[in-house]
Simulated assay, not measured.
Amino acid sequence: MLSDEELELLEAIKESGSLSRAAARLGKAPSTVSHAARQLETRFDALLFDRRRYRLQLTPAGQLLAHEAARLSQDVARLTQRVKQVASGWEDRLWIVTDELLEFETLLPVIRDFDALRSGVSLRITHEVLGGTWEALLDGRADIVIGATNEPPAIPKLGWHELGVMEWVFAVSARHPLVGAQEPLEREVIAEHRAVVVSDSSRRSQGRAYGVLGGQAALAVPTMRAKILAQRDGLGVGWLPARRVKSLLDRGELVSKRTADPREPNMLYLAWRGDQEGRAMTWWLDRLRSGRLAQRLVHGIDAFVLAR
């Protein structure tokens, strides 16, 4: 590891190209700079400075030393800052997992407000689907999960909060054969047509699939947006978040149909590991539990208002 003075020496020689100009830049006598350069070479038992040319240059070994020493110095500075950060109650990193039901756009204002705190906490935001959301918390792949469905599982020291209820609509494309079918749609009639489902991201089990009837063909897609687009294009049928597809329904690109077996609304949960509450987690939980933001998360954004 080089001292700050030694790093400054290497940088000064590299930039100026001569001992005299480096000395002037450092505010030292040329003899002092020359002696320090030779001491550095003796210390590493390597030729660090090419003195054969008119312009003094770093040798490949000198360039490597300058580059790696600067990188290590930055790493030490970052580590020092992170140690102070954790000692003051902030986490080193906060991992947030959202269920795919939620749109990432709803979190953008929260992220901006958190950045304004200049806490130094590194945020990681990923998403899971259905059982994979709870599983992420259970397996330690999340500190906070947002929008998880079904009842909270048995997880030691689990904290949870009800965000609100998501309403569903059974929708088909305006070009789909079920548009003209008699309502309410019976299970047998629906089962004759392919369902579109978002793939459960659970790693521990086969996962769940809402809205697929026994013997019904299914098209599995990676996201809720993909499911909406597939159904809009007549590639299948299924249940969709009512608020999220309102504009498509209003424009007639999707048509809602009553079914003999309506889908119950889903409670969406905010959950966290109660044994790891630092300042960042506390801040996020306070914001996410606020009524206005919780409502926005549950109701979502109609991303198809301008879509054509």
Rank of each mutant, 00 (worst) to 15 (best):
R243H: 15
A294F: 13
D113P: 08
V33C: 05
G147V: 07
L138P: 00
D113V: 12
A218F: 03
V169N: 01
R93H: 10
R38H: 15
R208Y: 12
A12E: 01
K227C: 04
W272C: 00
D250S: 13
G234M: 07
W283F: 07
H161W: 12
A23D: 05
L40I: 12
E188R: 14
S205N: 08
D99K: 03
S18L: 04
I125G: 06
G236P: 02
Q81E: 13
F304Q: 00
G211W: 07
R308I: 02
D286K: 14
L26F: 05
E91D: 10
R38S: 15
P156E: 09
G132S: 05
L248H: 02
A171E: 01
D92S: 15
L64F: 06
M281F: 07
A220W: 05
A116R: 12
A307Q: 03
G164Y: 15
W160K: 04
L19F: 12
N150L: 09
P60R: 09
K14A: 14
A23I: 09
W168M: 00
F44Y: 15
R71M: 03
R292W: 15
T42P: 00
T80Y: 07
L137R: 04
F114P: 02
S247N: 10
G215A: 12
V76T: 11
L19E: 01
W95E: 06
I228S: 01
A195N: 09
L163A: 10
S122K: 10
T106I: 10
